[in-house]
Design a protein around this nucleic acid. Sequence first.
DNA 1: CGCGTCTTTGAGCTGCCTCAATTCCGGTGG
DNA 2: CCACCGGAATTGAGGCAGCTCAAAGACGCG
Lengths: 242, 242
Amino acid sequence: MNARQDIHNSDIPVLCQACEARHRGVCGALNPDQLVALSKQSFKYRAEPGEELVGDSEKVVNFSNVLSGVVKLSKVLSDGRQQIVGLQFAPDFLGRPFKTESALNAVAATPVSLCSFPKSAIDRMVKEVPELEHRLLKQTLKELDEARDWMLTLGRKTAAEKVASFLHLVATHIDPEASMGSGPVAYDLPLTRADIADFLGLTIETVSRQMTKLRKDGVIEIEHNRHITIPDIGRLERRANI
Amino acid sequence: MNARQDIHNSDIPVLCQACEARHRGVCGALNPDQLVALSKQSFKYRAEPGEELVGDSEKVVNFSNVLSGVVKLSKVLSDGRQQIVGLQFAPDFLGRPFKTESALNAVAATPVSLCSFPKSAIDRMVKEVPELEHRLLKQTLKELDEARDWMLTLGRKTAAEKVASFLHLVATHIDPEASMGSGPVAYDLPLTRADIADFLGLTIETVSRQMTKLRKDGVIEIEHNRHITIPDIGRLERRANI
DNA sequence: CGCGTCTTTGAGCTGCCTCAATTCCGGTGG
DNA sequence: CCACCGGAATTGAGGCAGCTCAAAGACGCG
């Protein structure tokens, strides 16, 4: 396994060795040489909760892979009403190919670490490595599927169903096994009540009331406001109307 | 392959000559030879309003280009609540690459004509023509942008703003010049009130009341329930909060 | 002319929002 | 160790936007 392929430049960069993006993310499209080339231009970046990563209608010069943490993508109306239109978990790709301006805000929801590289490096590599575009297409289709699923939640579900859907979404993203397994799932919520409200198209008060109701009904347990335990995910799914 | 066509095999197929998808759609990626190859497997299909083109969780064997008309993409909850998650206009591409099952319903909203071809033909060509994947990525990114825009509408806008946003969306899709021009725009609504309600996450009564309000306020004119005239698109945009 | 479908309009209800007060909790300093 | 502070979350009371239910028009078609 660790047979030291060889001592040449085809060694995988240290930064990439443990990176999820190399397996499930876009970097999986690259061979060791290409990985080395890209890693020379890439840098790791850490952001604190609330820190803006990409501003709306701002020029975008960097793309990133999310290495850990959660990034919220949001849109705002002129009068301040806000809607979160997507959450990015590791190893999602952050950036909009073929456009120089972002149409949305990207803000760290939790402490986040990113692997960033200049947009130009990707633009160049896309031309040489068709597999890279293939990965980007797959990632984009996944995000489109998720966006459309969420549109159903936003447009047609009740507040109770929305909150249950949100707790379920986070559970399945943090622990992909969760949906099949019958055992309990536990996690720390990556979002504040205000964020959850912005994701669900509700107010914080309504979110709070529905969480309380789920807790009193024994569907979830809550500790320290943030830590959620779901004893029976099937029960939560029924509440979410999935 | 028959000899006669081989002689002139670089001629563009008749079906493709006037097709928008050759310019703005995915077929723009293909050279005349490839166009001929694909067109041998493709067929034109006409559908009437209400006709189901792709069923939810149905096996998908065909992809299509929309040549004319409007297709609605929708999702339904187990209890019948429905949400339209996208509208496809010419020359949009209809189909979900890399998945054999559809996660949504596609239904003709108006009379629709399609250029259909087997999924397998595309799957094969994608491997030979990287540019095809490039086009698919662009189309998917466009749809993702639109889906996210609409999430803001669904989650955070009032009923009045939603209806105005819808009328604006149709105006700009049917006449791409509409948004810049100051002149009046007119079109036939491709959707019934029930469809509009399902697109906006409202009831038909609320849609009807808001349309009446816009009409009484002089923002739009309505003839025969379906024909809409927008004297001043800027005025509509203000109502939509764009 | 009568029937079915789509749309409009009206009247009352309710789920979520708004506004306001209180509690919880982590951090900080005495 | 406790008192205090500020931000986040909860809880309560009342209002209203949009839903539900019901009825009546508008229009196309046999």
